[in-house]
Amino acid sequence: MEAEDPFERLKSMPPRGHHALLGIYHVAAGADWAELACPFSAEFLLDAGSGLVSSGPVISLIDAAAGAAIIARTRRWEPMATLDLRVDYLRAARPECTLHARATCHRVTRRVAFTRCEVNDGEPANPVAFAAASFFFTSEP
């Protein structure tokens, strides 16, 4: 039975494309949320000298976690596209730290899903970023 569940299928899929490049992996999930993580790489730096981490991997991790949260909630395997994504960078991520993104899908309509996401680099009480993203189900009605 479990193999039929779309979210279990998502979790068991080998990473490919950009998820594989960043090393994004599944951490935990609930009825309407999913937590994904991404280990630090020196290739994420914006400036090799200063150790400043680019916020690019944060954007990609949020996109991935938000998509997973929608499947965790809907338990449906539906093609979708990100409509918009807004990220507040609360502070710079520290080098050498694994990024964790926990996204919640708080509302799903027939065509649109709304998500929020919080990102931390090891201390959930001291987040790196807050985000809001909406998605559109692309299949024809």
Binding site: R16, G17, H18, H19, L21, G56, S60, L61, D63, A81
Partner: peptide
């Protein structure tokens, strides 16, 4: 490049966002 792909045949949204940011 294949390392920038999201769903099959499409550029990953996070990559597009990162390019805009850069």
């Amino acid at each position: 490049s294949p390392a920038l792909e999201g769903r099959q045949g499409f550029l990953y949204g996070g990559v597009i966002g990162s390019l805009l940011e850069l």
